[in-house]
Amino acid sequence: MVLLVLAAYPLLFIVSASLTRSSLGQPFQEFLGTENLRATIGSAAVQNSLLLGTGYAIGVALASTVLGTATAVALWRSLKSGVIIRTVLLLPMIVPPVVVGILFSFIFSPSGGLIDTLIKIVSPGSGTYAILSDTTWAIFGVALADVWEWTPLVVLLVFTALLGQDQEITEAAQLDGANGLQLFGHITLPMVAGTIAAAFLIRLILAFKVFDLVYVMTAGGPGSSTEVPAYLIWRSALQNFDVGTAASITLLLAVVATIVTLPVFWITKRHRHD
């Protein structure tokens, strides 16, 4: 009952705010019906933000899942020698996103940052390059920080699944002459496929919610090149004080995220039951 109330109240508030003229200090001033939603759906800024957020979420989730799975398999194959490495790899996950954003802002800084320093070493005399100030590459800079922070979660989930697999099946396959690649492709991978799909689903949802990194690293810029939906919602509510528009964007984001994640959820459910 408590969980129902905690989940239902925010949803009812968002829906009510989207149907009314609501400011930060005075919500539910006037009933507008679907006016906010129609204006939001027709907004080019909102459309671009949702498109950017969807592409960002899928790309980041894929990168984290592939890198995390590969790392988990490598750690699983070196159980005895990888204790310290496993601990170090999990550290990014416990670092607050704001700290991660600041760290990568320094890395991408055109004045003595790591990337700038490497460019000067490889190509002395070349000019500086500010990735986070480039309308094309800024979102990739944010994505890199995101992948660095959350890939350890995928590593942890897949590594745990690898530890829990039935060794008798693997040993039987080895007795039948299966080699390393055959074992992985026909035995190991199918056994942990459900966990990999679940990890991708979790990562996808987390990527749709990204805000901290954008706020710290680019503030939605340059221009609107990194203005993901969560940042646009924040700007509408806390900068423009338009809670009604912010609520409408939130509902649209929920619809888009549901459409994108449902197929992944079905795939995950199917693999978990196989």
Rank of each mutant, 00 (worst) to 15 (best):
A178S: 12
Q167G: 13
G113L: 00
G164F: 10
A173T: 06
I131C: 03
S109V: 07
S133H: 10
G112W: 00
F104H: 03
L163V: 14
I121E: 15
G180R: 10
L162A: 12
T117N: 15
A161T: 07
E171F: 12
I131D: 05
F184L: 10
L163M: 15
K120S: 14
F104G: 01
F159V: 09
D176F: 04
G164S: 13
A130M: 02
D166F: 09
I169E: 14
F159H: 12
G125I: 11
P152F: 04
K120G: 14
S123H: 11
K120F: 13
L162D: 09
F140W: 11
I119Y: 11
G125Q: 12
T160Q: 09
L162P: 10
L132T: 07
L153I: 02
L144I: 07
T117E: 14
V142P: 01
T135R: 05
A178G: 11
H186W: 13
L156Y: 10
T151V: 05
L181H: 15
L162V: 10
P97Y: 11
V100S: 00
A173N: 06
P152L: 02
A173C: 09
F108N: 00
L132C: 06
Y129P: 03
L156D: 07
I139N: 03
Y129E: 02
T117R: 15
V147R: 02
F140P: 05
A172K: 00
V155R: 13
A143L: 09
V99D: 07
F104P: 01
V99H: 05
Q167Y: 12
G180F: 11
A161L: 08
P124R: 08
L181R: 15
V100T: 02
T117Q: 14
Q182A: 14
W148H: 13
V158E: 01
A138T: 08
V155M: 13
D176T: 03
L157T: 06
G112C: 01
I169S: 12
H186E: 11
V155N: 13
T128R: 12
G101S: 08
A130G: 02
W150Y: 10
V99W: 02
L103I: 15
L183T: 09
L114P: 04
D146W: 02
W150N: 08
G112E: 01
P110G: 01
L181T: 15
D116R: 08
Q165T: 13
P152M: 04
G112A: 01
G112R: 01
E171S: 13
V122H: 06
I139Q: 03
D116F: 04
L175T: 09
G101C: 07
P97W: 09
V142M: 02
G112F: 00
F184I: 08
F108I: 01
V147N: 04
S109W: 03
A145V: 00
S109E: 06
F159K: 11
A138I: 06
L103H: 15
G101N: 04
L175I: 10
A143R: 04
T128A: 12
V95T: 08
P124E: 05
L156I: 12
F140T: 05
T128S: 13
E149M: 15
F108E: 02
T135H: 06
S123F: 12
L114F: 06
D134F: 00
P152V: 03
D146M: 03
D134C: 01
H186F: 13
L163E: 14
S126W: 09
I139L: 07
E171D: 14
S105Y: 08
A161V: 07
G185I: 05
I107R: 11
G185Y: 06
L157D: 03
V100E: 01
L114V: 08
G101Y: 05
